[in-house]
Simulated scan of single mutants.
Amino acid sequence: MKQYTKAKALLESLKTIPDYRVDIGKIQYPLAEVLFMVIFALLKGNTKFKEIFGWMVYNKENPILKDIFEKDEIEIPSKSTLHDILTNTDNNALEKVFRQYFSNYVKKENVAIDGKWLNGSDANGQYTNECHKAILNILDKDTKIVFGHKFMAKNKANEISALKQAFDEDNLFSDEGQIFSFDAIQTQTEILNNIDNNGDKYIAKVKGNQKELKNKKLKLLMI
């Protein structure tokens, strides 16, 4: 019988995420198992809430999942319960587990940073009146793996502050030289100085009206 060592290691890591539900002894749908299935639904290209739920229902008889969970039967929460579980899970705790696990599979030599809207993040308005969520994705370009995220409010100004916060977080980026690429909105003097001070390189778009940054760019090219 296959051991699925890496998959089980991820499941054990997900078990460290605190469950917001009070009576743990009566929980029918373990948080770690739900999150595990959601992650693999996303990896299979199911990015919308309805698609994730459909993938989970379709795969509840999957023998590999049963082996990983060490169960003869996998129960799937209803669509509304799944939505409650996902919206009440601690994003910061989940992000910490995500970064620790996937950091073993990335090189962190060529990094692309970009803000995206999370399509379908309002569950098509069925369970909440909130607008779509915005997120800053941090992508390892060599392995094509997103190894970090920062949630944002729905405005472009917040994308700048989100990247500034990301640079201050431990173990998100390598201590060695890296190449960063990001949109023109992120091309701010403070951000570029932060990268310079770390001895890193970057590829950044500079607008014509950003005279100070254009001069900085030309100076760097001459070095």
Results as ranks from 00 to 15, higher is better:
K2T: 08
V22R: 09
N193S: 08
Y29V: 07
N158S: 14
K8S: 07
Q28M: 10
D183Y: 02
K216N: 08
D168R: 13
M1N: 11
N129T: 14
E130D: 14
A162Q: 02
N137A: 14
L43G: 07
T143F: 01
L139F: 10
E176F: 04
G208N: 15
K141Q: 12
S78F: 01
K66W: 00
L10Y: 03
E70L: 09
I68G: 01
A162M: 10
I113T: 11
K217F: 15
N92R: 07
A112L: 11
K108W: 03
G120D: 03
F98Q: 02
S174Q: 01
L10V: 00
G45H: 02
N104R: 12
D183F: 04
L192F: 08
T187H: 04
L218T: 12
M222Y: 11
L220P: 02
H132G: 04
Q28H: 11
L221N: 09
I145Q: 03
A41Y: 06
I17F: 00
L43T: 08
Q188S: 06
N88D: 11
E95Q: 13
F180S: 06
L31F: 03
I24D: 07
A157W: 03
I179M: 13
Y58E: 14
E12R: 11
Y20F: 15
Q126F: 09
W55P: 05
Y20A: 10
Y29Q: 00
D72W: 07
Q186V: 00
G45T: 05
I191K: 05
P18N: 10
I17L: 00
K50G: 11
D200R: 02
I85F: 01
S13L: 14
N124V: 09
G115N: 01
I185N: 11
K201R: 09
M1W: 04
V34D: 11
F147P: 07
A166N: 05
T128K: 05
K2Y: 12
E176K: 13
L163C: 05
L42I: 15
I179Y: 13
L139N: 12
I160Y: 02
K216E: 13
A134Q: 12
K144D: 10
D72T: 13
G115S: 11
A123W: 06
G148N: 14
I138S: 00
S13P: 00
Y105F: 15
K216A: 12
D84Q: 13
K6G: 05
P77K: 03
K214C: 09
K217A: 13
A9H: 09
K133Q: 15
